[in-house]
Simulated scan of single mutants.
Amino acid sequence: MSKIEMTKKHLITCSVILVLVIISSVNIFSTNPVFPVKRIAYAPSNLLFSKPAEEAEEAYSFANEALPVNDKKVDFKLKKSIAKNRYRNIQSNVLHSKADKMFPVIEPILKAYGIPEDFKFIPLVETGLHEGTSPKGARGVWQFMPGTARTYGLKVGKGKDERLNLRKSTIAACKYIKELYGEFNSWTLAAAAYNNGSIKLERAMNRQNEDNYFRMSLNRETGSYVYKIIAMKEIINNPEKYGYKNFYSYMQKPLPFLVYN
């Protein structure tokens, strides 16, 4: 093969390669780039249809002990207690007024004795809309009987009744409640025993072989007592939700039936 023929063959080969390169370049730049697909994490279907936070089931508790509101009986009794204390039934702001006067005195004493703050609602449950001495002789916001009051350091008699002294009677109540907790190892049972007495409650527990207040069958007053406390807590903490609008602010006029120091 001559030199001229070899040169021609070489040129043809180079031309073919150049054409292929040009075609490849055109194909590359005419194609849309493909990027990695970002995965989107979808929520499970049951979450997509779940209730908003504000509509979620409310959690009720007493002294950090949760209520089994999934129990229909418990749920019914609690809602019944709350309904009784709505503004449309009470038609008065007296509960909030009393709370605003008493709580600043009661709260630090409860804290000092290691008693859960939820016990501050007991005086509102015990005295409610009325004051005075009960038919059985209990008196003051903590509704102490004379003998129990004396046991826990209050002077009753000879023209003196420290059950009406808010600070002193609260200290006595704390001593009593702490003793009840030591006996039952449950703040809920301690509250029930505060209402019914430790001996009667212990007998009921032994008879029923049960130590859960919400599963026990108790007399009407004691069986609804803790529900009343939780309902009072809910009403006082969320007044507008239950129809109370013109509620009082802390420390207006002192309550006339109490001695504060």
Rank of each mutant, 00 (worst) to 15 (best):
S2G: 13
E5S: 12
T7F: 11
K8W: 11
K9T: 10
K9H: 10
H10G: 15
L11H: 12
I17A: 14
V21H: 08
I22S: 03
S24W: 10
S24I: 13
V26I: 14
V26Q: 11
F29C: 06
V37F: 08
R39V: 15
A41L: 15
Y42Q: 15
P44T: 14
L48F: 04
S50P: 01
Y60R: 01
S61G: 00
F62S: 04
L67E: 02
P68N: 15
N70I: 09
N70V: 09
D71Q: 06
K73E: 13
V74N: 03
L78F: 05
K79I: 02
S81Q: 15
A83M: 14
K84N: 11
N85S: 07
N89F: 09
I90M: 07
Q91L: 07
H96M: 02
S97Q: 14
K101I: 10
F103Q: 04
E107Q: 09
I109N: 03
K111F: 06
E117D: 09
I122W: 08
I122D: 06
I122A: 08
L129Q: 08
E131N: 13
G132P: 02
A138D: 06
R139S: 15
R139L: 12
G140E: 04
F144Q: 05
P146D: 07
G147R: 07
A149G: 05
L154T: 00
K160D: 06
L164F: 11
N165P: 05
N165R: 10
L166I: 10
R167N: 10
K168C: 08
S169P: 13
S169L: 11
I171P: 05
K178G: 09
A190F: 07
A193C: 00
A193K: 04
G197H: 05
I199E: 10
K200W: 06
R203P: 04
N206M: 05
E210I: 05
E210P: 01
N212I: 06
F214G: 01
S224A: 10
S224L: 12
A231C: 00
E234N: 07
E234I: 02
Y242E: 02
N246G: 05
L255V: 07
P256N: 13
F257M: 07
F257C: 00
L258T: 10
V259R: 12
Y260P: 03
